[in-house]
Amino acid sequence: MTEKRNIAIIGAGIAGQEAASVLAGLGYKVTLLEKQERMGGMLNKWSKLFPDFSSSQQILDTVQVSANKNLSVICNADISSITKENGRFELSDNSSLKVYADLVLLATGYNLFDATLKEEYGYGVFENVITSVDFEKVHKSGKKLTTLLGKEPRRVAIIHCVGSRDAKSGNTYCSKVCCITGVKQAIEVTRMWPDCEVFNFYMDLRLYGSKYDSLYLEAQKHHKVQFIRGRLSEISERQDKGLQLKAEDTLQGRPLRMNADIVILLVGMEACEQNADLCRNNTLDLDENRFFKSKNIHYARNISTQPGIFMAGSCICPMSVNETLESSRSAAFLVDKSFRSVQVEE
């Protein structure tokens, strides 16, 4: 009865680690597979978290797992196939690695939208156009954000919905976390440079979470961040490497041209390209946004369309850190429940 207790978790980001520690604590044999050299996933790229500016490192440290008798961690394991044979799942990467498990938990996370695809925004062409992730990197390093020539920016524009809610990018869904990230980063810029003007260009502000609106209020009240309702159409570069933005101020109903020293693109979350590979040889399915499809988005969000495979975190849809952690605990609970029901049947 105790043999069938092997669980493989793909992805050792915060979702995978959190689920791994819960399940290992319950006495299951967990194998945590990570494609990168180290665990932590995408959160490694972040400096501070919304809405409270707490350190992402703190979260990473809290969820950090270490190998024990119930938990083994394999890094550099880029799982590309899941096959079910004789009631067991066989997971393999492109080399010789093979892992067997009775249950699989997908915690593969997300990819960031490649901002070079939105060529009209000039990422990769104009040096002073950066992404929200580039900004986090600067912030994490403890340095101040400067223009390419090392100067203090007088004006920074933050662009919402880059690669989200955009049919031209192939992503029609909302990435959900960018709006609040934009507000957070606007505040962080003004904290670095109190004299710097910050403008956020948005289509709709979607600040759905607890305490998000108070951050919005704070940005306006204490940091004079301005919000312009209009989608950026294109950026051009002036002779002095400064940037010129074109958008419409839709509330005014007039096209707007603005010079800015730095533009931050809030890049959206995308499903991982490898998701499609993982769907081969089983009945896993992807939804219309290429994330893993849930059996039911209300009561079975963590349950995939393949019996025996569960999901946690932002491989289901874009999620914030707290949602991810809740999602993985919920997944761990369902995994445990699934094992128990099998045992009862037996």
Binding site: E119, E120, G122, G124, V125, F126, E234, I235, S236, E237
Partner: peptide, 9 residues
């Protein structure tokens, strides 16, 4: 071409 700034640069 204004939407492909890399061509212009």
């Amino acid at each position: 071409t204004h939407l492909t700034p890399r061509v212009i640069s």
